[in-house]
Design a protein around this nucleic acid. Structure first.
Length: 362
DNA sequence: TTCATGACCTC
DNA sequence: CCTTGTGTCATGAA
């Protein structure tokens, strides 16, 4: 049976900032996405454990976080997120992990799953992971938490058990007991909405979820999600995927002020289109579908999309299509003001298809 | 089947 | 003066 590890870099963005600025050693660190409207508008992207103790957490408005910090009088640094820098550190860490294991699935900028099936005992797996964590600490000066189990689901939940800087092992025989008393909302993929609906069915814990039949779950949640919930309750996880193909790429940004003037919105669409195309090119992809994303003054999110006749990687096509979707949207919604605007490319075709497509086009 | 959009999740 | 940014999946209509 497989042995899988989940590695989670502890309050990663904040740790990265500490690495390049030792002055931050003794203060709390809050990483912010400033939206550019007014002093402190924007949201908290990440908070270190000191800040979390003050009640600050990801998603919270920056102004509110600042209030919490000043209330307690603690020293807390509020820094703008520097994604490219964190990405560099992340890539070095992932490479380092890769040297110790056969296969790795990079789940996000600060998380990865590793296949440890080349070792044959959990003791050996623990040794490998302690070495990996030590190297990460020595070479990048950031700590990592890890979980080891028979699959991704269990490994991930195990890594959550002892944070920061911990390691938890859940061998196959102990999975059932490990999960039984866990609240269902701690299962990966079960958010507040699903947790509420499960509670209505009488399942607050995994043990209770386990007692609901698949049929029942499918009736309530639909085929895909129902079966997935059932499997999670049994402690079954999916396979490691070393590279999974991107299905869409998007950028969204807050406008300086709510508006419905194209002269305000157009230049932002232009910039976002260029950013998205940059990434489309990096992946050597061609997109066939374009979407414009609108967040209204009331914070409601809407999208409008259009499928192209042929795949392309043109920035002009992306820009003009998004622009056209936006004017359409404004025309059909005479009363809405736009707060945030986004551009998405999707329905990718890999570069190989190029000659064929071109042939069809001409 | 394809297309368009909203629900939902995570951070 | 108030919340970012990115992604996957389900669903209903054409």
């Amino acid at each position: 049976m497989a042995i899988i590890a989940h590695i989670d870099l502890d309050s990663f963005f904040a740790s990265c900032e500490r690495v390049r600025n030792p002055d931050l050693a003794d203060s709390g660190v809050v990483i912010c996405m400033f939206s550019g409207r007014g002093q402190d508008s924007g949201a908290v992207s990440a908070a270190d454990y000191t800040a979390r103790d003050l009640g600050i957490h990801a998603g919270m408005p920056i102004s509110q976080a600042r209030q919490l910090a000043s209330d307690t009088g603690r020293d807390v640094a509020f820094l703008a997120a520097d994604k490219p820098f964190y990405k560099e550190v992340s890539e070095r860490v992932m490479d380092l992990i890769r040297e110790h294991v056969d296969r790795i699935e990079v789940a996000s900028i600060d998380e990865a799953y590793a296949d440890l099936s080349h070792v044959d005992t959990y003791d050996a797996a623990v040794n490998v992971m302690q070495r990996v964590r030590q190297e990460i600490r020595e070479q990048e000066d950031v700590t990592a938490s890890a979980g080891i189990g028979p699959n991704k689901l269990v490994a991930k939940m195990a890594s959550d058990q002892d944070k920061p800087d911990g390691l938890t092992t859940v061998p196959p025989g102990t999975v059932s007991a490990f999960l039984a008393d866990m609240p269902v909302k701690e299962l990966h993929g079960v958010g507040p909405k699903t947790a509420d609906r499960l509670q209505e069915l009488g399942a607050s814990t995994v043990r209770e979820l386990r007692d609901i039949s698949v049929q029942r779950l499918v009736t309530v949640f639909g085929e895909t999600r129902g079966i997935a919930l059932h499997e999670k309750a049994q402690g079954e996880g999916s396979e490691i995927l070393e590279e999974r193909e991107k299905k869409q790429l998007s950028r969204i940004e807050t406008l300086p002020e709510n508006t419905r003037r194209m002269s305000d919105i157009r230049p932002v669409i232009r910039k976002l289109s260029e950013d998205v195309i940059g990434r489309v090119e990096n992946h050597d992809m061609r997109y066939k579908r374009v979407a414009a994303i609108f967040v209204t003054a009331e914070l409601e999110r809407q999208t409008r999309s259009r499928t192209l006749k042929a795949p392309t990687r043109s920035v002009e096509t992306l820009f003009r299509t998004a622009e056209s979707l936006t004017t359409d949207f404004l025309e059909t919604h005479p009363d809405v003001e736009v707060r945030r605007i986004g551009v998405r490319a999707a329905a990718f075709d890999s570069g190989e298809q190029q000659t064929l497509d071109r042939f069809q086009q001409e």
